[in-house]
Amino acid sequence: MTDPIIGSLRVNGATLHYEVRGQGPFLLLIPGGTGGAASFDGIAEDLAAEYSVATYDPRGMSRSTLDDPDAEQHVAEHADDAFRMLELLSPGEPALVFGASSGAIAALHLLTTHPERIARVVAHEPPVVEVLPDAAEHRALIAHVQDTFRTQGLMPAMAVFAAGLKKDSDTTEPKAELKLPPRAAARAEQTMANLPYFVGRIVPSFMSYAPDIRRLEGLSDRLVIAGGQDSRGELPYRSAAFLAERLGTELQHFPGGHIGLTTHPAEFGELLRKALRASI
């Protein structure tokens, strides 16, 4: 295993920690949820045999610090952070981009605002609930999560959030998702440290984001929407499937559930390679 090149990038209101490995076509990995660059530990090294792989901690997460810790977060600003990464690490060259969950939402916005910089985007389960016919129900869920967070605290809010994401009558999926590889389990402390920021700042902003469907339709030849094989019926999967349908593209299935890149890294990485090769 080779050590990554580590650096920092100053952006508007934040300083971003980033890591680069390998050589080849440039591939930017945008993490989601409470994950930072470390959430790609299971796949980054293997991908680096074929690509120049860059990933980073999104602003406010892990080692990427905010000038104002209480600043509201916006999808457009997070997408601009990704664009600044491309400008620094892959100037002038169209890049490959993978985004997971909220990172997939940032990747979608990046594609619509800077298509000239993008060769291909693979977006895994972006929870763009505003595209769903029952979006109002999910707006109510997000409001309930925020109210619970303010009045009862973090863990009750997470319980409300997790229940809202699950499919009806699902009692088995959480048990399956607990079987994490050792390196992922070792990140639990950092994950917990990031949770308040995720629940209080990222969830309300990203899950109220409405993608520009018309713009994405014109760019759909550069976009792969993916869903987890084991997360059918869950809210992020439903959002991804509905978005793919709206764009007239086929939803590609990756192993595992919403965090399949963590629970099934080898299989996930191989399918990601196949999705990316179509653009080279």
Results as ranks from 00 to 15, higher is better:
P265H: 09
A143W: 04
S8C: 00
P69A: 07
G24Y: 09
V224C: 13
M155P: 09
T263C: 02
M207Y: 13
L86K: 11
E50F: 13
A157S: 04
R21W: 14
R214V: 13
P156F: 03
D80R: 15
A107W: 02
V121H: 12
K274M: 07
M61L: 14
P58H: 05
I30M: 04
L180V: 06
R232F: 06
F206K: 04
A188H: 14
F242C: 08
L195P: 03
R59L: 04
T113P: 02
G257N: 10
Y209H: 15
I118L: 06
H114Y: 13
V121W: 13
A162Q: 14
H74K: 07
E50W: 10
P255V: 07
H253M: 15
A185L: 13
G218T: 07
L276H: 07
H138E: 04
E45F: 04
H124Q: 03
V121P: 08
K175D: 07
S90G: 11
F254M: 15
E245F: 08
Y237G: 01
G22L: 02
G33Y: 01
R117C: 05
P127A: 00
E270W: 03
L111C: 13
S231T: 08
D81G: 08
D221V: 08
L195A: 14
E217D: 13
V145H: 12
T112G: 12
R222C: 03
D3M: 03
F206S: 07
P211K: 12
F40C: 03
E217P: 13
G36M: 00
D221W: 05
T249N: 04
M192N: 11
M1G: 14
E177R: 15
R222G: 02
G260P: 00
M85W: 04
V224K: 10
L195C: 02
S102C: 06
A163Q: 15
S64G: 01
R59C: 02
R117V: 00
D80M: 12
S205K: 10
G256L: 06
A157K: 00
I118S: 08
A143T: 10
H109P: 01
G269R: 08
G60D: 06
T2V: 03
V224S: 10
Y18Q: 04
A104L: 09
R63W: 00
I142Y: 10
V160D: 05
F26T: 10
I118D: 05
Q229M: 05
G218L: 12
L66K: 08
V75T: 09
A123Q: 06
H124I: 00
T151N: 15
A119R: 15
R201T: 06
L86R: 11
V224Y: 09
H17N: 09
E19I: 01
F254S: 08
F161D: 02
S231M: 10
R21F: 03
D46M: 07
P181C: 06
G257V: 09
G260C: 04
F83K: 06
M85P: 04
E245I: 02
T55Y: 11
H144S: 12
Y51E: 00
V131H: 11
F98S: 01
D147V: 02
V203N: 09
V199E: 00
T172P: 06
